[in-house]
Each structure stands twice: as C-alpha cells, then as structure tokens.
Design a binder for these strands. Sequence first.
RNA 1: GGGCCCGUAGCUCAGCUGGAUAGAGCAGGGGAUUUCUAAUCCCCAGGUCGGGGGUUCGAGUCCCUCCGGGCCCGCCA
Length: 549
Amino acid sequence: MKERIAHLIKEAVESLFGVKESRFRVEVPREKGWGDLSTNVAFILSKSLKKSPKEVGDVLAEYLSDAGLFSDVRVEKGFINMDIKREVWIKEFASLIREGADRKFQKNIGKGEKVQVEFVSANPTGPLHLGHGRGAVVGDVLCNVLEFFGYAITREYYVNDAGNQVYLLGKSIYARYMELMGKSYPFPEEGYRGEYIRDIAEDIVREKGDMLLSLSEEEAVDFCVEYGLSAMLKRIKEDLEDLDVHFDVWFSERSLYDRGLVDEVIRILKEKDLIYEKEGALWFKSSLFGDDKDRVIRKSDGNYTYFASDIAYHYEKFSRGFKKVINLWGADHHGYERRLKAALKALDIPEDWLEVYFVQMVKLFREGKEIKMSKRSGEFVTLRELTEEIGKDAVRFMFLMKRSDTPLSIDVDVVKEKSSENPVFYVQYAHARMCGISREMKNRYGIDNLPEDFARYLNLLSLEEEMDLIKKAVMFGDELTEIVYKKEPHVITYFLYDMASLFHSYYNSHRIVGDDINISMARYTLTKGLKEIFAFALNFMGVEAPESM
RNA sequence: GGGCCCGUAGCUCAGCUGGAUAGAGCAGGGGAUUUCUAAUCCCCAGGUCGGGGGUUCGAGUCCCUCCGGGCCCGCCA
C-alpha cells in the first residue's frame, strides 16, 4: 500500500513539477488524526522549487484527490495527510483472504539473484552458546524473507576446522583421554576445559579402548583432532536442527588450503604488489584500502593467519557467482569488517557485494539475576540448555524480540510463564483465540468456511477497531518488504505483538459470534483474515501458530 | 592510544534514509469474568531523550566536544 502511494506521489510530482523525486517518505503517522498515511514530500520539494511546503502540498493534494484512492487528502503543517477510502481497504483485505497472504504479498524483488547468507559459523571447539543461537535464528528468518521475495538463497556455515584452535581441541581431548586411562599428561594451558571435552574422550575410550596408547603422541592428537571435530560438528548440527535451522552448505576452512586457494589469493595480491615481508612474516598492505594498519597473513612460523583463509574464503564465494553475500557476525568481530573489506577491495570485488551485520550478545536472567557465563571454567549456559528449558518456539521468538545489533536480555522465568508478560504466549494466544472463533461459528451456526461472497460481509463492519485491524493487516506487506533492504527481521515480532494487542482489545470489548448472524459473519470474516496473517507471519519466524492453547 | 557500538520512564527496549504533541511492555496503583479459553482487557502514574555546543524551516535521529557503559585492537581464531 505504501509503495502504491509512493508511486502515485512520484507520478504526481513528475507531472506537476517536471522533476523526479524519490527521497520522500510515506509513513503511518503517529497520531490517528493525521491520516492513514502521511508524506513529507512537500518539505523536500520546497527547497528545490523555492516554494513553501504549504504551496507545494496544496497543489499535490489536489492532484492526489483525483486519484480515486483517497477519501480525504489534506495539507497540515506541511505534511500531506491522506485517508484512504474505506472500500479500498476492504477490497485489499478481501483479496488478502481470497488469495492468501503469500500470494498477496509476494513480489519478485530478487528475480532469482544468487545471494549467500553466512551465519553462526561458530568454532567447532565448543557447544553453541546463546549468541550463536540468536545469530542462527536471525539469519534463518532473514533467509526466509529473502527467499519469499525471490532471491536464490544459500545458507552457509563456515567451519573453522584449520589452525591452532582445532589442534588445541585435539590436545584437550587427548589430555582427558590420558586421564581416563590413568596416565599423567599435562592439560594444555589454553585448552578447552568444558565438560563436553571429557564426554568426547569417554566416547573414544568406549569405541577405541586403549588403542591411542599404542600411537605416538602426534598421531594420537591428530586422531583426537579429527574425532573431536566430527563430534563437535555433530552436536552443533543437532542443536541447530532442534531450533529448525538448517544449512545448505557446511564450508570447510581446510578445504581452502587443500584446493590451493589461500596460496592463490596471496599470489594475486603479490602480483598487485600488496604483499611484503617483514620480520619473517608476510604482510598485506590493508592500510592502503582503509584499514588502520597492515595485517599479517602468514606468521613467521610459516602458518597462515585466520585472515589469510578468510580472504580466500570470500574470494571463493565471489567466484561461486553470488551477486551478494551477507555475513552475520558476533559483535566481537566488528573490528574485523574493515580489514576484510580492504582485502576484497584489493581483489577488485565491488564494495557493496559484502554486507556485514552484527549480532549482539544475549544475557539470561533468572529470578531477576543475571546468569553469568564463564568460558574459562567451562560453565556457561548453552543454546541446548535454553532450548530444552523453554522450547523451540519461545527461543526463536525471544531471539527476534530486538534489533539484532542491540544486546538482548531474556528472563527465563517470564518466558516459561503462561501470562501476558510472556510475549510468545501473548501472540500465540491471539491466534488460538481466532481459531476459537471459527469453532464457535461452527457450533452456533454450523458455518465451517467462508461463503463465496464473503466480501460483502466485510462491508457490514462498522467499528473503528475493525478498520484499524484491517489497515494494519493490509500494510504488513510493506513491513515485510522493508526487511529485504534493512535486514531487520525483528519487525515481524513487533508487528505481531501490536496486532495481537489490537485483537485482544477488540475481542474483549465486542462479542464476535453473537445473536445477529450478519454481524457475526462479518466479524468472523475479519477474524479469518487476521488468522491468515498471523499464521503467515509466524511461519516466517518459524514459530507455531497453535489452534488452541 | 586507536576503532566500533551504546546511553530514551524505576527496569527492558521501540522510535523507520531528520519531520508534527517522544512510544510500548514489565514493575507500581485502581478496576472488568453468567466468555467466542481472563494465558485477556480497561484506567492511572511515570521523561531536562547522558551534559554542552553546532548544522537545519525542523534534531532523540546528523556534526563536534565532554561524561558514562560495553566490545575489539596479538605474527589468536
């Protein structure tokens, strides 16, 4: 709807003033009296046209009045406030019911463009924690929306299975193994002390017995590296699947080395004279491309840095033909963005090809107190624990409660509670109530479905609250579309919450299925449409829309 | 010392590329139940948008500066 009106305004501006203008906004104004929609276009034009906003607005308003779409167009304090005809809203809502929300809101924005979204990508050296889970859900929902709008999405997880950390994982497991076998072996200083390491070591004992004792230390640690990696990955996959998050590609960092891609990018950068040697290490001149300083890509001990393989990885992504790549990173990586972008620039990859978004950490509260996580002691709240405690729906919903780049707090007690304090239940309950109305309609009037001519009933709706619900439902398409550009899937949660609030209020003050069959039919039809929207929106979030609770 | 993010009601946060009289939930106070599930609703109270300066017709939003908080800044990943 917004888009339709923005288009209309553009046309009006062009035919009235002969200029193209697209910087203006069409928005739902804060105050009800300011129209269904409002635009600031007159302010923007007043500068270039050297006329007052009022003058510009008056001319535009008159033009727009003739479009047949509005019941009223007026200029107030320079804003053009527009009321859309009731029958237009009703017609839109009716077609939403008839076609279904997915047909109604579908737009082929992506046109099949290949886009890769890389998210989670947690190191396979420990269980997923809450921040990873948040990234998983945000990424997944973002992908759902992009797919809906016609992008060919690849969901990808980058597995850091190379480098020192996996060696440490292997060593930690080996140390626990030796411990279990009654041998003394020092636990590595920087090793992973979590309970899961011991679990893996126990699995090895169960499967292989004392087999490792007959190997050299090096061979045994190698074995533990491989065994540990696959065990960790298996757990990570399970944790994600329990949240209904699935990846198309699990990309191995190691494979970049095996395929010679790391050497290849370094060779390319060398040819461009962007690599130099200093103190036995190899440096990339990232400072030439906006980074604060140059960065090491091969250490003096001959090992490559993580940065080196990451350049190769993104180079590889580019060669796979993705038109755009979206990375969701933990907030502790924000300093890294500039470095990577510098490298991509050096490789002549367009600047806007890579978009990076950050996911902030999640804090857990219980009985009003924060549950502190400590990686050092190996004790922290894992994603698995939270999922087991509050369930998939609540986890997904809560992770979508805020913009992903702001820290999130979750109070476990509240989420487990079945009351209005719990937003998950609040929203799901609204849907369940809508289903309850369908049941009542059947019990009382034997009506099981909408008749062919259901639209005429919508005309009988006379309450302001009913129109508010209809308007908001129709405009959900606009909010969803914005996610494509702004990458902020939490707006779905806000929409559902607002919608639920409007509905609960309506439900409380008006009988929906009552003595008057016509009014009952009208309100039932309204509810049907709302239910459609709720199921549609919840589906994007990957949260159940329960029939009853 | 450098970089990034944040500071909005007691708490957790919305506030859309600057727009009209700053919003919601929770917590606090008061009310609604012969129900289509009260897992709900209604009302009240609560603010120098961290301070100061600037740009602008207009600033919570942009710029500068200061204060406060978080994260990053290794030849770790």
